[in-house]
C-alpha cells in the first residue's frame, strides 16, 4: 500500500491504495469520478485520457503511485461551474458524439491538441493527432468539426486558412 496525494481538478486528495492501482481506477473507484472511461484497457482507444500536469496521458496505463504529487485534470474539471468548456460546447453544438463513450477522452485530447498547436489546426493535423483516440460509432467527421470549432472558441488558436 502507498499513500497517493494528487490535486484532482483543483482539489487536494489523498488515498491509501495498493501500489498496482491504475490511475484510472484511482479516479473512478477511489474518487468516484466516473467521467473518465475505460474502453480497451490496453492504451489504444484513449477513452481514459486525462491530463497530468497539463499533458494528455492514458490513465489506464499509468500507476497512481507513479504520478504521486501531480496535478490531474479529468473531464469533470473542464467546465467552469455550469458553463461548459468551449471544447465541450463545440462537441455539443457540432454533434461530436453519438453514443458518447469515447467523448471524455476525445475532449481531453482535443484540449491537449489545441494547446500544442498555437499556430492553428487544420483537418489533417487534427486527424493525425487523434491517432490514439478511437470512436467506434465512426463519428470522426463531426469530432473533427467539433475540435476545429472548439479550437477557435478557445481563442488564441488561429485557424489555418480553409
Amino acid at each position: 500500500m502507498s499513500e497517493v496525494k494528487l490535486t484532482v481538478n483543483g482539489r487536494a486528495v489523498s488515498r491509501d491504495v495498493e501500489d498496482r492501482t491504475l490511475l484510472v481506477d484511482f479516479i473512478r473507484e477511489h474518487l468516484g469520478l466516473t467521467g473518465t472511461h475505460v474502453g480497451c484497457d490496453t492504451s489504444q482507444c484513449g477513452a481514459c485520457t486525462v491530463h497530468i500536469d497539463g499533458k494528455a496521458v492514458k490513465s489506464c496505463t499509468v500507476l497512481a503511485t507513479q504520478v504521486d504529487g501531480a496535478s490531474v485534470t479529468t473531464i469533470e474539471g473542464l467546465a467552469d461551474g455550469d458553463t461548459l468548456h468551449p471544447m465541450q460546447s463545440a462537441f455539443r453544438t457540432h454533434h461530436g458524439l453519438q453514443c458518447g463513450f469515447c467523448t471524455p477522452g476525445m475532449i481531453m485530447m482535443a484540449v491537449d491538441i489545441v494547446k500544442r498547436h498555437p499556430e492553428g489546426l487544420d483537418e489533417e493535423t487534427i486527424r493525425k493527432e487523434l491517432e490514439g483516440n478511437i470512436c467506434r460509432c465512426t463519428g470522426y467527421h463531426n469530432i473533427v468539426k467539433s475540435i476545429e470549432a472548439g479550437a477557435a472558441d478557445m481563442g488564441g488558436a488561429k485557424m489555418a486558412a480553409e
Binding site: 492504451s43 484513449g46 485520457t49 497530468i52 499533458k55 494528455a56 496521458v57 492514458k58 496505463t61 499509468v62 485530447m109 491537449d112 491538441i113 500544442r116 493527432e129 491517432e131 490514439g132 483516440n133
Partner: peptide, 9 residues
C-alpha cells in the same frame, strides 16, 4: 511513436 498520450509517458 505510439500516439500523443503514449508519447507523453
Amino acid at each position: 511513436i505510439g500516439d500523443p498520450a503514449v508519447r507523453n509517458m
